[in-house]
Design a protein around this nucleic acid. Structure first.
Lengths: 143, 143
DNA sequence: CTTCAGGTTAGACAGAGTCCAAACGTTGGT
DNA sequence: ACCAACGTTTGGACTCTGTCTAACCTGAAG
């Protein structure tokens, strides 16, 4: 199956994905999408900025933020709020939760398929659930 | 029972609480503790700064941050990370989770007693759980 | 060609939080 | 009463993330 995956995130395919979400696939947007999707990791805005400008300075900070917010609004990516100092952007929009390693900062996915949460109280009147996030904070144990 | 509670958060009682956590109860620390505990709400650092300096400017920004971090380290309070732009400080250190209203910013507690989460994968080797946070993001439904 | 809308940009700006060296205030010892 | 020493507080400078603005490109349509 690696054969099937190896070309999944070509610039061409990403352009189609963007169009599918109603986004005009510009050069910068494709590069940003490529940075996020091709490694499937949780990246912060400045990591993305650094990746995109790795070979040559091509994309400004403003564009990175504009684009990330555009991707968020069109639900192409999600944001993960676990670190008080910065937001992580998550290419995985399937239902899932996170391990967050407080020592290393590493963020790893937990598939939501097997997870059941019982005992949540009813929502206050006039409220609608937008999502349930579970964050398991862990530490690298000494010894 | 209101009779029993009404004097719970006097300066004297708070000084004892601080001492009980190994904290030297200075004037500023007591005022900050008072601001947080007497209303039992989730406050941000700058709300606390404003409350403490309401009558007269007595406490600097640096001291508020120093003190909040000290309270965190001694587990007198907890931090709640739901808003990308600022941290909320939570006087409730009992096991509990949160509703977060994305429209109003209101943060309300969910008692953890009735909640069960099943299906969480085993922790990676050498990891210890520090805590599990569940955040239910809600919106005020239009109409 | 020109027009125009959408996209990009640099740099100024705003807000949260940290850092630092100086000043302050208690405490204990003499 | 004085001094030394320690812990605490402080203003202000600083860093960092993220937003805003006004100018500037670019490419499609007339």
């Amino acid at each position: 199956m690696n054969l099937m995956l190896e070309n999944k995130y070509t610039r061409d395919n990403l352009a189609d994905v963007l169009r599918g979400h109603g986004i005009n696939p510009t050069h910068q947007r494709i590069e940003i999408a490529h940075a996020i999707f091709s490694r499937g990791e949780h990246l912060s805005a400045d990591q993305i900025l650094a990746l995109v400008n790795d070979r040559a300075a091509e994309t400004s900070k403003a564009t990175v933020y504009n684009t990330l917010n555009l991707f968020l609004k069109t639900r192409l990516i999600r944001e993960v709020i676990v670190d008080p100092s910065k937001v992580f952007y998550d290419p995985n929009t399937e239902a899932h939760h996170h391990f967050y390693n407080l020592d290393t900062g590493a963020l790893t996915d937990i598939d939501a398929r097997d997870i059941r949460v019982t005992g949540l109280p009813a929502l206050p009147r006039g409220m609608a659930t937008e999502g349930v996030d579970i964050i398991v904070r862990v530490r690298t144990r000494a010894a």
